[in-house]
Amino acid sequence: MPKEKSDKQEQGAGRQKNVPVGEWIVAVVGLILVIGSISLTLYRALTEESTPPVISITVDSILPAENGFLVRFSVQNTGNQTAADLNIEGVLKNGEEIAETSAMTLTYAPAHSMREGGLFFTKNPNELDLQIRSTGYSVP
């Protein structure tokens, strides 16, 4: 440490202060976090087109439930826009005839993210033709 500087510090602070290495490390981590999060958001903001939500729903499992059956599914939004109040409808078909419908609303399906949900049916989805699709959403 240069003598001049330490003199100045002693005068200025009343007590001499060494900056611990840890302090620098945390500061550099902070700098990286700032640059990292700014550049990630900027990159996304500048490169991504605002394409509408693209919703795909896959059935994960069909389980017995109280008074019927539970169909658990995951919703994947591969679009660049978030869908709010995403309505999801499940239909059980017996040939052309609709045997039962159930519906739920997913509060949010964020862009490029996955959410999970479930639908209850009284009839056995394993024995019928199960179709799950999203029927509509609002822009948050």
């Binding site: 900056v19 302090e23 620098w24 945390v26 500061a27 550099v28 981590v29 902070g30 700098l31 976090l33 700032v34």
Partner: peptide, 11 residues
């Protein structure tokens, strides 16, 4: 340095 430390801690 203090500002970046505060941000790192906040993060």
């Amino acid at each position: 340095r203090g500002a970046f430390i505060a941000y790192a801690v906040g993060f």
